[in-house]
Design a protein around this nucleic acid. Structure first.
Lengths: 207, 207
DNA sequence: TTGAAATATGAATCATAATTCAACTTAGAA
DNA sequence: TTCTAAGTTGAATTATGATTCATATTTCAA
């Protein structure tokens, strides 16, 4: 399903052709992120989104075919933001284990800063399953590549693979929900350190 | 919010008072599990649920105040089923690590058998956040208790706690989604073994 | 400067189900 | 057996918001 357009929100023929149009579409996407984030997909209304964006109701349909399509476009955009944030956290010359710690730490801080993104991507499981799946498959793929590098460098066990990647991702997502969204009682550093300890040493007592 | 009734689906005054009523309510809950599982909350309709249950539309309101309330009741019931299945998997005299392996294995099989349960509980994040949260807080609590026992027995590191519990739960849930719901390409045993390897030894190379 | 293409507007339309309700049937206690 | 509470029925009501569309305004290439 690769697209030939660079704009992730593209939809056949509704691309804005002027700077004004681009600005309006941007305002709609930003307003939608807030509205969907606060209310969830079904409680959110197009009317409220256009009010937030400061445009007329009808303008919405200049840029999107439907409420569903807007949501899809948004999920793909947000998924990309998460991906970029993780990439940014990757310092060169880190050990494979430290890389995972950095990514988790960055993810926790990102989840705290942008709780709405967390919620929207999660809700995509029900509104736009394909995007949801792609989001996590891509993320798992990137973890897997880091693990493979670590294995090649002799830092990690040589048999680490896809299952470990999904396990790490699940860890991260749930820690993000519990300690990023539900409460901020613990520091991101502490959580990342403890979770990283599992990867580094497991949970078995060592003498 | 403890209730004084034993029926998890109770709602003030809509309890069935005869065997016939109980049967009808049961049929509605079973039909709802199928309908919500297949279509999701918003695509599912009360009409379709009553048709599946073989009752009249109006009968629904004899037992539930609303679509939301039905969903809530169902989530609490299903959450309980998951909990019971995990408890069943716990053989006595297992090591702490083996216990986690058994629970994950049981969870994977359960997810495969009852994909609809997996989906409904997930969707509760948006329809009935309180039940969703309780479901996972309870599950984390039970993991934490097992870890504490393992620590007391000297099998696990003495500092294992809540964060490890949430990490393990996240691992399990994501592995359930990826290898239980999305595909069954790998055996439940293999997945449980590999994930358990992370807990037992971490992912770092050992010489 | 100008006019055709883009964009903006919001009242009116339309579709979908959730929920209500008044009439009817059945269960089961006395 | 009888009678009342419990349960059943499905057509009618109602509420909500997504989407359409005819009209007005703005942009910008020529």
């Amino acid at each position: 399903m690769a697209t030939e357009y660079s704009d992730l929100t593209e939809s056949k023929d509704k691309q804005p052709r002027t700077a004004r149009g681009l600005r309006t579409k941007r305002k709609l996407l930003d307003a939608a992120a807030l509205e969907f984030g606060e209310k969830g997909f079904h409680e959110a209304s197009i009317t409220a989104i256009t009010q937030r964006a400061g445009t007329a109701l009808g303008s919405f349909y200049t840029y999107f075919d439907s409420k569903d399509e807007l949501f899809s476009a948004l999920v793909r955009e947000l998924s990309n933001m998460v991906k970029e944030r993780a990439a940014l956290a990757l310092a060169p010359k880190q050990s494979a284990i430290d890389a995972e710690r950095s990514v988790l730490h960055a993810f926790l801080e990102f989840a705290r800063e942008h709780q709405e993104i967390y919620r929207i991507i999660d809700e995509a499981e029900f509104i736009d399953p394909q995007s949801y799946r792609e989001h996590y498959e891509n993320a798992a793929q990137r973890i897997m590549e880091r693990l493979a590098e670590g294995a090649k460098a002799g830092e990690l066990r040589s048999d680490v693979g896809e299952i470990e990647a999904w396990a790490i991702m699940g860890m991260n997502v749930f820690l993000g929900m519990r300690y990023g969204i539900w409460s901020e009682e613990k520091s991101a550093v502490e959580i990342a350190d403890i979770a990283n300890g599992i990867l580094a040493r497991g949970i078995v007592r060592e003498d």
